[in-house]
Every structure is written in C-alpha cells, then in structure tokens.
Write a protein that binds this DNA or RNA. Structure first.
Length: 514
RNA sequence: GAUCCCGUAGCUCAGCUGGUAGAGCAUUUGACUUUUAAUCAAAGGGCCUUGGGUUCGAGUCCCAACGGGAUCACCA
C-alpha cells in the first residue's frame, strides 16, 4: 500500500510555500537555529520610561506576528511572545532592502527584532526596528482575530477561533489566538507547585507508584484494561494509588504523597475526563480530624498564594477560603435538608424515605446507593462554601476506619465546594480482620453484579496484616480545584488536551482508488 | 448509552415558504513614512461534513452515518 501524502493545500498555503522558496533563493534562511532576545514584551511595556528612553535604546524582542499594517514605506506590526503583545515599527529608511522582504512575511511568522523603544504619537510603546530577522516561516494561516485594546486596557478580540472542537483538538491554535487562556494553565501549574511545596516543607516524601497495576483498587470505578506481551497478563490503568501508598506507610515511611493521573473508564462530561489528576497523601500517627485541619490550611495556602486573596469568585458566587471551613456531620445534614432522621435505617426504610422525599432511586438500589442519591440531590447542592462533611456510613467506605464512638459510621470526611466534591479523606482502616471482612463484602457485591465494587487484593491485605500504623489519608481532585480557582465550568478548559473522539484518518491513496 | 441543538471560504457568521453561494476579517494587486479592529480601490478564494432519498430542481425538506456542544444517566 502506498503511503504518499495527500495533503490538500489552499491558495494561501501554496503562496506561503512559494514565499519560503523565494526567501531561500535570496539567501535568507527561514528557520535559523536561535536568536538572542534581550526583553519580553511585557517587560518593555512596564519598564519603559518616557523620561529615560535611552535606557531602552538597544533591545531585542521575538515573537509571532499577530497583526500587520503596511502603510507604504512604513509598517506597524504586533508580535506576541509568552508575556503578551508589543508593537514593532518598521521603516524603509532604516531597513532598506530588508524592508522590501516584508512582502514575503505573513501573520503567523515568527520574527526577531532589534531596535530602540519609543512611544508613538498615538501613545503606544513600540520597538523601532533597526534590524529584522525571520525566525520561523509559517505555512498555515492561523485563525487570529483582530483585537481592540480599550483605554482601560480591556481587550476585545474579533473573530478569534471559537469552535470548541478546534480549540480542544488543536490547542496550539487556541493558545495563539486566545492567549488569555494561558493564565488558567499557568495558575494550574502554580496550584500544583504550591501544594507540592506545602507538603515538602512538612517533610513528606513525594513518591511514584505503579500506573499499570495487576489488580486495581482504592476506589470504585471501571478500569481501562491493557495487556503486557512479555508477561502475557492483563494489566489495569490505575483508578487510584491508595493501596500502594499505604504499602509505603507499612514499610516505614511516615508521610508520602503522589500527584498523578488516574484513569476511569466512565462517561465524559463537564466534570469528568477519562484521565484526571489526583493527589493522594498518607501521614502516619494522624487521624481524620488532624487531616481536616491540614487540608484547610493547604487549600487556604494555595488560594492565597495563587489568587492573592482568601476569596474567589466562581461563576458569580463569592467563595471564602478563610479557615476554619464549615464542618457538618453527614446525618446532621440529612436532618437539616430532608427533615428526616436517616440514622440506622435499613434498605427498605431508606427506599420509602427516598420515595417520600421525591428522590428518584432504582428499587433494586443498595442502602448505600439510596443514601448517596438522597445526599447528592437534597444536600450536596447546598454545600456552596467550603464545607467538610464528616462521618459516613461504613458501607460507603470500605477502606476507612470504624468511627471511634459512632457505631455503623467511619471516620471519613469529604470537602465540598460549589456543591462539588473536591477532597476525600479517612482515618485509614488498619484493623486487618475488619479490612478483610470489608473487602470480602465488596467482592460479594461484585459477584452480585456491581462491576464497580472493589476487587480483593490479597497482597494489600497481607500488608495490612503486617501492620499499618494509625494513618490519615487524603485525596484531592486537582482538576476540580483548578476549575474553582480559575472560574472555569468545564474540565476541558483546565486540561490542555481533553479526551476527544479520534478524528477520521485521511483516506489513503489505495482507498482513494489512486 | 438517551434526548435536544449545531456542522456553509483560512476565521467569525448570514443564507426567508426548496430555484444552482453571500458579508466582514484574512489573502492577492495598487495607493499611503507614527498606524492601531488603519483607510481607500480592485481581484481571487466553497465536493455548503459524508452517504442515501423526495423533487423538474436540495445549503435549505426527509432518513442514516461521522464529528462537536448541551442536558440526563454512570462516575471524581
């Protein structure tokens, strides 16, 4: 089968390729290896002084041409670097033959400019070019809209790429055309680095555990399955790293954490992507009360350091991250929002409670599912400000330690913000007999048809039998935290490359009948 | 997986009760040495997502497929 390229090029692309050949013929290399750059755009715009313009009499900048206004023997263009845009002023008197080559330059090309900084009659700080170097010739026209900068600095962008499919599939074009979205990703990086520093300062060790696991565990979810050829075994992409991190605590580390991707073979929507980033941390000799305090301190630190404030506006709602966060026991919240005491009810009673509350549940649902459903419909939407929900029923939490005083409950909390779960934590279950009983119960639920229930991991049970010290564990959904702090309502907008259905591959020559 | 909406030029979008494709920006040519969504004049550019059907005639109506978005379900 022939694999000849069948790229279709439009008139603009063909013209640009001709320009490229023409430049080479003139002895201009369209793809030089490097360029010395002295300043970023933003640096010049903030540091330029009208009183002392000579301080910037010799600068060099580089970036992508985003706009070009040719006016005969003078040309203005805007170039964009990672910090923003700056205007370049090019004059035939200064550049001579090089100026004539401008006809071979296009929007999208990357150039380097050396010159002096000045302020135009219209008041815009610009670089007056003494020399101009082509750094990369762009062959594909990019969908850049024109932009208008108002007096107050607000930027209006016209006709920039708006199609979500294009924006997600070709994020590089999105980043060029909508540079303001970079802020989200820069903040994402800062959120993670702040979290990492918070843990490192406290002496906890960042570790790496297997992503390919022979037995998946630590959460209830359907996994992705893959196959290892040499061992001829099925392996699973991890749905959580909990069981491995606990093994390290058993091994003698007293604080370990991991920030990395989990994979869950479930539906996709505004808050779910098949691969997502989680942080899990385990600290020995601590319990969930301690972990709650640690969590609110960590979140507060992240918010104040990345948002320069303790409050954040999310989709029009002001959220306060001042400590302490609200705390509420799960069954107290049921009392408050349903008017019913659901403590200790069996499956049949919960089912009739759900019916009387107009919560739609499957009549075959387990007690755990019914409680979960009532909670998510009637309680969760009220948890707008950061709120710790504590003390869950044991059936919902097979890896959490039995509550020290409340029978039937476990020492667990979840952090809710804007009605969404952001963190989940327990006093970890370290009674090996209890742990075995709970996992066997999960295995039974699984045998009864719930393929999301946990699988028994004998080596994990063995490890707990060796002896896990009292330990507190926490998991945080990084993507959701980033969404909250960057005011984005879709997970796709906080991931550079959200999962998309693969595009149809271009037809090959043979299929084409060539 | 279900339902609804969307798919037209490189980009943003028009296109009425079916009559063979339109604008702005971008591109090309010309004018213009401090412009800024530069301006002015002219020009080129479309398998209207794909495949069927109805019709004398389909961008438009019907069916299906593909891709996207939203809502729901599952889940974090």
């Amino acid at each position: 089968m022939s694999v000849m390229s069948t790229v279709h090029r439009n008139d603009q692309e063909l013209r640009r390729i001709e320009e490229l050949h023409e430049l080479r013929a003139m002895g201009v290399e369209p793809f030089p290896a490097s360029f010395h750059r002295s300043h970023h755009a933003h640096q010049i715009l903030t540091a330029f002084s009208d009183e002392r313009p000579d301080e910037m009499s010799d600068v060099s900048v580089a970036g992508r041409i985003m706009a070009m206004r040719k006016m005969g023997k003078a040309t203005f263009c805007h170039i964009q670097d990672v910090t923003g845009r700056i205007q370049i002023y090019l004059k035939k008197d200064d550049l001579g033959d090089v100026y004539d080559r401008l006809r071979l330059f296009d929007i999208g090309d990357i150039i380097g400019v050396e010159g002096y900084v000045f302020r135009t009659r219209m008041g815009e700080i610009s670089v007056h070019a003494r020399s101009l170097t082509l750094l990369t010739k762009s062959i594909t026209p990019i969908p850049v809209g024109k932009e208008e900068v108002a007096e107050d600095g607000t930027v209006t962008r016209y006709d920039a790429i708006a199609d979500k499919e294009q924006r997600y599939r070709r994020r590089y074009l999105d980043l060029i055309a909508n540079p303001q979205i970079k802020d989200t990703f820069v903040k994402r990086a800062r959120i993670i680095s702040t979290m990492r520093r918070f843990f490192d300062e406290r002496g906890w060790l960042e570790v790496e555990t297997p992503i390919l696991q022979p037995i998946y565990g630590g959460a209830t979810a359907r996994p992705f399955v893959t196959h290892h050829n040499a061992l001829d075994v099925e392996l699973y992409l991890r749905i959580a790293d909990e069981l491995y991190l606990k093994r390290l605590i058993v091994g003698g580390f007293e604080g370990v954490y991991e920030i990395s991707k989990n994979f869950r073979n479930e539906g996709m929507d505004k808050t779910h992507n098949p691969e997502y980033t989680a942080m899990e941390i385990y600290v020995a000799y601590k319990d969930y009360v301690w972990m709650m305090e640690m969590t609110e301190q960590m979140v507060n630190t992240i918010v104040t350091e990345t948002c320069a404030s303790e409050t954040v506006v999310y989709q029009g709602t002001e959220l306060s991250f001042a400590t302490p966060f609200a705390r509420a026991r799960m069954f107290d919240l049921f009392d408050q929002h349903t008017g019913m005491d659901l403590r200790g009810l069996g499956r049949a009673e919960l089912l009739s409670a759900a019916r009387s509350l107009n919560v739609d549940v499957d009549s075959a649902a387990s007690a755990m599912k019914i409680l979960d459903e009532i909670f998510s419909v009637l309680v969760q939407p009220h948890l707008i400000q950061p709120t710790f929900v504590m003390d869950y029923p044991v059936e919902m939490s097979p890896l959490a330690k039995a509550h020290r005083t409340e029978k039937g409950l476990v020492e667990r909390f979840e952090l809710f913000i804007m009605g969404k779960e952001v963190a989940n934590a327990f006093s970890e279950l370290n009674d090996p007999l209890d742990q075995r009983a709970r996992l066997e119960e999960q295995a039974q639920i699984r045998a009864d048809g719930d393929d999301e229930a946990m699988v028994v991991d004998e080596d994990f049970l063995h490890c707990i039998e060796v002896g896990l010290p009292p330990t507190a564990g926490l998991g945080v959904g990084i993507d959701r935290l980033v969404m909250l702090l960057t005011d984005n309502d879709s997970i796709r907008d906080v991931l550079f490359f959200p999962q998309m259905r693969p595009e149809k591959t271009a037809v090959t020559d043979t299929e084409n009948g060539v």
